[in-house]
Design a protein around this nucleic acid. Structure first.
Length: 424
RNA sequence: GUGGAUGUAGUUCAAUGGCAGAGCACCGGAUUGUGGUUCCGGUUGUUGUGGGUUCGAGUCCCAUCAUCCACCCCA
């Protein structure tokens, strides 16, 4: 085989696309109900944008970005996530927003990360995201979390758990980091090599370490949640209250750390436990500093993103049956070459009437064409041969009823419309 | 980036170092213009790719590509 899709990429085939339409329809419907508008941003951006917003020390920036120079020598990168572009767009266009009237937007599209592929982890993958920009209020955090939750419920993804945490603001987080590092450095040499590395780069990750020794050591470590400043603690309480009002079930997990640096205060993840190593469907959080950091007006914001592949994989795993795509309604079967023109004209009239139809290959037998109709749930077959050309009466077969009528060619459309059986 | 498993027809899978096969799917036919079942027949192919060992390689060795699994990380 000469060509293959590049490593970590794949084609969505006709028989798979309905799965995507299914989840995309739900995303559109739910975001519309909450008055969010879709936006589309470029698939690549200045490299610098991601380095600054996602964070220099993150895995994404350190080793997972598709970077390239264009012909003018500009440093660019395929987007590894969506929020950076949204923040850039808001800052660049100076999009007006306020607490009274936050900007509610959502997006969907391909993201790119150079990581080792596995099931549910690809180098090109689809994410959708929902972002509310302009309000610092906790009820907006809850709104975002609830939208993601409802989308997963609507889609019938089984056994999702929602875990929330607060990672604090720059003030209390910096204080906490000093506290935590002091604690960690006390027994620095006792931690595994991974954790010694994490101490420098992302100390919070040590809480996730599976090594027993590290787990034991970290048990007594100070927790972010216990060291929030008054404002952040208050904010977190109100997010929890709002979620309760919205009847969105959650658990507080003080170990939720997101892999991006821009988060402040609220952080959350939607998790499942049946896709192997891939246990996160998505997550998000508040990023009050990002837009200002990128040169825009200081604007608080909160958002979420989720992976479409993982949602679809969860549904497949649970045996969910996706609805069928629309079937062909009419197959026109010309018998011999004389009726070809009449067949094409018939097809065009059907199309004008909004009825899907194609003309069968004139060289194949009537029998095999009817078999095709049976197998593919085609509703009607129209037979046109020399006799029909002469009489102007076409043979219209109702495949499901196994019945056959001779219909004046001018009346075929009406006949089909009145005899159409809606099968769902 | 680390460690491991796998790769044969459209698909699911066989084949001791000795002529590449079966089910499903697909196509054709069962008196030439009529149906899902049945019966008969047919094609399934650069054995992922490139080297090597051998009289002979799907099988053994090396490299490479891809998929999967566990790390890492995350969607």
């Amino acid at each position: 085989m000469k060509y293959q899709a590049p490593r970590g990429t794949y084609d969505i085939l006709p028989e798979d696309i309905r799965k995507w339409h299914y989840i995309e329809d739900i995303i559109r419907r739910l975001t519309t109900l909450y008055n969010y508008s879709e936006v589309r941003t470029p698939i690549f951006e200045q490299l610098d944008l991601f380095q600054r917003s996602v964070g220099e020390d993150t895995d994404i920036v350190e080793k997972e970005m598709y970077t390239f120079k264009d012909k003018k020598g500009r440093d660019l990168a395929l987007r590894p996530e969506g929020t950076a572009s949204i923040a850039r767009m808001v800052a660049e266009r100076n999009l007006q927003s306020s607490t009274r009237e936050p900007l509610r937007i959502w997006y969907e599209g391909q993201m790119f990360r150079y990581s080792r592929p596995q099931k549910g982890r690809y180098r090109q993958f689809y994410q959708f995201g929902v972002e509310c920009i302009g309000s610092p209020k906790p009820i907006i955090d809850a709104e975002i979390i609830a939208i993601g939750w409802q989308i997963l419920q609507e889609a019938k993804v089984p056994d999702v758990s929602l875990e929330i945490n607060s990672v604090g603001c720059p003030e209390c987080r910096d204080k906490y980091n000093i506290l935590l590092k002091e604690f960690l450095y006390k027994d620095k040499d006792k931690y595994c090599t991974d954790c010694q590395r994490r101490m420098e780069q992302n100390p919070l990750r040590i809480f996730d370490c599976k090594n027993k020794t590290c787990q034991h050591l970290i048990e007594k470590a100070p927790r972010m949640l216990d060291n929030l400043c008054e404002e952040c603690a208050q904010h977190f309480e109100e997010v929890k209250n709002s979620l309760e009002m919205m009847k969105v079930p959650f658990i507080v997990n003080p170990e939720i750390v997101r892999g991006l640096d821009y988060y402040t205060k609220t952080a959350f993840e939607y998790k499942i436990n049946y896709l192997g190593a891939q246990d996160a469907l998505g997550g998000g959080g508040r990023y009050d500093g990002l837009i200002g950091y990128l040169g825009g007006r200081q604007t608080p914001a909160v958002g979420l993103s989720m992976g479409l592949e993982r949602i679809i994989l969860s549904l497949e795993k649970s045996g969910f049956s996706f609805s069928e795509e629309d079937n062909l309604e009419v197959l026109i079967i010309p018998i011999g070459i004389n009726p070809i023109q009449a067949s094409i004209e018939m097809m065009q009239k059907l199309h004008e009437a909004g009825i899907s139809a194609i003309v069968a290959d004139e060289g194949s037998s009537v029998g095999s064409n009817l078999k095709y109709c049976d197998k593919n749930n085609v509703s009607f077959a129209i037979l046109i041969g020399d006799n029909e050309l002469k009489s102007g009466l076409y043979v219209v077969k109702n495949i499901k009823k196994k019945s056959q009528s001779e219909v004046k060619k001018e009346e075929v459309i009406d006949f089909i419309k009145t005899h159409e059986v809606v099968v769902k």
